[in-house]
């Protein structure tokens, strides 16, 4: 194993890990740091469950190697809730019943967060486009769209 030190900012805090530089961010978040809120649905970039924010943009942590993370800022689902208070997006997913098995949800929440940061008042089409790479097998997406709309509404208050 070829390991090296990689430094980056994780959920607002500087961290340092000693890992193979071509390990994916997902492998390190889960298997090294045991930060399991970020989910592994396919490791192929097909499902979106592993979505995190890299310098504020939604990316697949399964398709990002540690060398690419060096010096950058990573936000995971655990980093959204400030002071123990869930983010408005998280609350909206809870309240609209958009969560069933919930395994895809951290990815959806991160993709939604990125959308609302870039575009605080997205149209329905914008929502569908922003989430088209996140797969959910439980909900049929109806309540997920409702959740995003509710988050938009709540954030606008």
């Amino acid at each position: 194993m070829r390991r090296r030190v990689v430094r980056f900012i994780l959920n607002g805090e500087e961290v340092e890990v000693y890992v193979p530089p071509a390990f994916t961010l997902l492998e390190v978040l889960r298997d090294v740091l045991h930060l399991t809120g970020t989910k592994d649905g396919c490791s192929d970039g097909d499902c979106g469950a592993c979505t995190v924010l890299l310098d504020g943009k939604a990316v697949h942590s399964c398709l990002t190697i540690m060398a690419q993370v060096e010096g950058r800022e990573v936000t995971t689902v655990e980093g959204l809730a400030g002071d123990g208070e869930p983010d408005v997006v998280q609350k909206a997913y809870v309240e609209t019943g958009a969560i069933q098995c919930g395994y895809c949800i951290p990815g959806f929440i991160m993709a939604t967060k990125a959308l609302l940061t870039a575009n605080p008042s997205p149209s329905e089409d914008d929502i569908l486009e922003a989430l088209r790479g996140n797969l959910c097998r439980c909900t049929g997406y109806v309540k997920i769209v409702e959740a995003v709309k509710k988050a938009v509404e709540e954030a606008g208050r």
């Binding site: 399991t36 997913y93 919930g102 949800i105």
Partner: peptide, 23 residues
């Protein structure tokens, strides 16, 4: 009543431990 599920919040904040999350 359409009460939000009890388990939803933990899932939304990434706290729920699924079978793949145990180490």
């Amino acid at each position: 009543r359409p009460i939000p599920r009890l388990d939803a919040l933990d899932k939304a904040v990434g706290r729920t431990k699924y079978p793949s999350d145990y180490y």
